[in-house]
Simulated scan of single mutants.
Amino acid sequence: MMLWIAVLLLALVLMVIAATALLFRTEDLSHLDSTDYPVREATPNDGHQQVLGRLRELGEASRGLKGKARLMALRRHMDGLSEGITLASEFRHNDEPRGEWVLAPGVDSRRRVLYIHGGAWAAGSPRSHRAITDAFSRLANAAVFAVDYRLMPEHRYMDGVRDCRKAYTWMLDNGPDGHERADFVVVAGDSAGGSHTLGLLAWVRDNGIRQADAAVALSPSTDLTLTAPSNRDNIQTDPLLGPVFGGLAKVPLPVIWWGTLAAFRVSPTNPVASPLRGSLANLPPTLIHVSASEMLLDNARRYAAKAASEGSKVTLHTWPGMVHVWHIFTDLLPEANDAFEDIQAFLEDLESHRTEQTAPCVDDSASTPRPTA
Rank of each mutant, 00 (worst) to 15 (best):
S309H: 12
S291E: 06
K306P: 14
A308Y: 06
Y303G: 10
L297K: 01
L297Q: 04
N299W: 06
E294R: 02
W319D: 07
K306F: 13
G311K: 00
S312T: 03
A300D: 00
K313D: 15
K313S: 14
L316E: 09
G321Y: 00
L296T: 10
A300V: 03
N299C: 12
G311N: 11
A307T: 06
K313V: 13
A304E: 10
P320L: 04
K313C: 10
L316F: 08
A305L: 10
E294A: 08
A308V: 13
S312N: 07
T315W: 04
R301S: 09
A308L: 13
A308K: 15
V314K: 11
A308R: 15
E310I: 03
N299D: 15
K313F: 12
A300N: 03
S309I: 06
S291P: 01
R302E: 12
A305C: 12
N299V: 04
E310C: 08
D298P: 06
E294I: 04
A292W: 00
S309Y: 11
Y303C: 05
L296S: 04
A305I: 12
T315M: 15
Y303W: 10
A307H: 05
Y303E: 07
W319C: 02
M295G: 06
S293V: 05
H317P: 09
S291W: 02
E310R: 03
N299T: 05
T315A: 14
K306Y: 13
A304G: 01
S309R: 14
T315L: 09
L316P: 04
W319A: 11
L296W: 06
L316A: 11
N299Q: 13
A292T: 00
K313Y: 11
R302C: 11
M295V: 08
R301G: 07
V314P: 06
D298R: 01
T318Y: 09
E294F: 01
S291M: 08
L316R: 11
S291I: 04
K313P: 06
G321D: 00
R302M: 12
A307K: 02
S312P: 10
